[in-house]
């Protein structure tokens, strides 16, 4: 049995670190793991996607439409863009933060309204929170990734302490406390 987790967001939001921690946790638990990401042409600003797959034996590193068990989106519009990659009974974990893409900034397109409501109405189990506020309250705006990781971890049936230990051994010394705080807050928020 292979589980598939898709992590999407905007370049620069820290999606890669969350996939790195996830991959390390699943490896430690004895699973076969494949993590794959493509970040295209820019350091910042483009749509980025990371695939994390784990199980007894993983062949393809890629996740296609209708194949993800969990979709973690760092941004609302990206949740809409990638929701079709979820299995119809998959779970969407999404940040409510909005980041305007260039076609919206330049007035060529409009940012869709009520995205999360529309996804939910389409029949996708949706868990959302303002991960940027969680991170800022924890004392580090960049910890958005840990807040979302916490939200997702609460659905993964893995001992919370395993996640915390892996975060502690991965992030820099001076951001340990804030990252854990953001993770914990995300975890409890999603468990509500």
């Amino acid at each position: 049995m292979v589980k598939s987790i898709l992590i999407v967001g905007v370049g620069g939001q820290g999606t890669l670190l969350s996939s790195k921690i996830m991959g390390a946790v699943f490896t430690d638990l004895g699973y076969d793991v494949k993590v794959s990401e493509v970040h295209g042409m820019s350091q910042r600003g483009g749509s980025v996607v990371t695939y994390v797959k784990y199980g007894d034996k993983v062949f393809s590193p890629v996740i296609e439409k209708g194949q993800a068990d969990i979709l973690i989106s760092f941004e609302q519009l990206e949740a809409a863009r990638w929701m079709s990659y979820l299995k119809p009974d998959g779970i969407l974990i999404t940040n409510t933060q909005k980041i305007d893409p260039m076609p919206v900034i330049s007035g060529k397109a409009e940012y869709p309204c009520n995205i999360i409501e529309k996804i939910s109405n389409a029949g996708i189990k949706t868990i959302c929170a303002d991960a940027l506020s969680i991170a800022e309250n924890a004392g580090l705006a960049k910890a958005v990734n840990m807040a979302l990781l916490g939200m997702a971890a609460s659905f993964m049936h893995i001992d919370k302490q395993i996640w915390i230990d892996k975060i502690l051994s991965t992030v820099p010394e001076k951001t340990k406390e804030t990252n854990i705080k953001a993770f914990e807050e995300g975890y409890s928020k999603a468990s509500e």
Partner: peptide, 29 residues
Amino acid sequence: SQATVKAAVDGTHDQCIEYPEQIPARPPV
């Protein structure tokens, strides 16, 4: 991908739910 290979050989796709509206692109900047 596994999906394109499967679709090419036996024409089947996994079921999925699409977002109901057009979505603006997010090109790199």
